[in-house]
Design a binder for these strands. Structure first.
Lengths: 207, 207
DNA sequence: TAGATTGTTAATCGATTAACAATC
DNA sequence: TAGATTGTTAATCGATTAACAATC
């Protein structure tokens, strides 16, 4: 309904534009051109313009893009003005690191609770609840949770994801080493460290 | 020198094949066909065959692929038979989670040391040394370290990467929220959680 | 006005898919 | 042998790049 389907490649570049625009803003720049962005990020100027024009004409011929304006547009496109409530499922190493990682607040994600099957093993900052997985579906509905961060073992990840889908979760950020795909109803991003390490190994070997 | 340049898309799929083949092996299967892989991973059978044939003819007409044989080939291609020595630079939340994450051993990566500027804040399992960043270049050379895992703040990541390159590191696994690119000399994989979270936000918004 | 830079259309390039001969 | 499935060639599709008219 919104616009013609935007390719995943384009979406993957948007955060890079946003990050660079933030840097420009911090360093006091008022304007930026597609060729500035190009040389900073190693993306062709043509592609930068092509990508941005998917969402509207944000620039001005002969001038470039107004940094503040484009930043605001990107924030809108990426949905960074909204605050999201999140839970973590799986209180192991990664789950605990994420639960105490303060970077989330900057990105407008508030972690409300950590779920596990063995509560005694889990610790978390005191404003984050520690609860049993059995309570999860009820909690997600009651507290209107948007995002679930899955950091369970891979064996449990798929069924946890299904349970969350049924509980009405909107998005899943998956750290378990398995691809999760729940169709169009739930937004999913997989961070597969294991696959990344394999790719690193491949690249290193090829040198 | 090796073969015609393999595209990054192909490389990104190799670990998925490997992971699925492992599952086949664990469940006792002897053979697997491109259409088996296709339905398990949501990749077309044609692409599976195309991808694998970049590295050789591993299958047999009318039969498919021998699981053990293909697994061995993939292990070779990905370089998973070799053990790599690694260090972690940056002893914050992510660095510490990684230092005690046992999954590495399975993937043939041994973490030898964690480097930081403020040693008193860092803890690690006792077989992992905790050292000051100033000692890093010397250590990398002396101990023949292959992989550096960067988990510093983004402000330091780039200069740390340069220092490591000069010390002769072979690969960098970067968790700092900034793209690192060191040319052809050093293999790099970026895990940018911040960008991933932005993409998740975008997808969620679009629903 | 002259110079710069956008947004967009057209051209190119590369990746994915389809088809099929080879053959186990 | 008949059926199945590969490896590879050709066709299609989509993404990137180039070019340029519009215009600030």
């Amino acid at each position: 309904m919104e616009q013609k389907q935007i390719s995943l490649n384009v979406i993957a570049r948007l955060p890079k534009y946003y990050r660079y625009l933030q840097e420009c803003h911090e360093s006091g720049a008022n304007k930026v051109s597609s060729s500035n962005i190009s040389s900073a990020l190693g993306i062709t100027a043509s592609q930068v313009r092509q990508d941005l024009s998917n969402f509207g004409g944000f620039g001005q011929q002969g001038y470039g893009y107004d940094v503040q304006f484009l930043l605001e547009k990107l924030r809108n496109i990426l949905g960074l003005n909204e605050t999201h409530k999140a839970i973590i499922v799986g209180g192991g190493r990664i789950g605990q690191a994420l639960s105490s990682y303060s970077g989330f607040i900057k990105e407008n994600v508030i972690i409300k609770a950590v779920f596990d099957v063995e509560l005694s093993h889990v610790s978390a900052p005191k404003d984050i609840e520690i609860l049993h997985v059995a309570e999860m579906p009820e909690y997600v509905k009651r507290e209107n949770i948007d995002i679930a961060i899955i950091s369970t073992q891979k064996e449990f990840a798929l069924s946890v994801a299904e349970t969350l889908k049924n509980a009405g979760i909107k998005a899943i950020w998956n750290f378990a080493p398995i691809d999760i795909n729940l169709g169009d109803d739930v937004a999913v991003e997989n961070i597969n460290m294991s696959e990344s390490l394999f790719r690193l190994s491949y690249k290193m070997k090829k040198k």
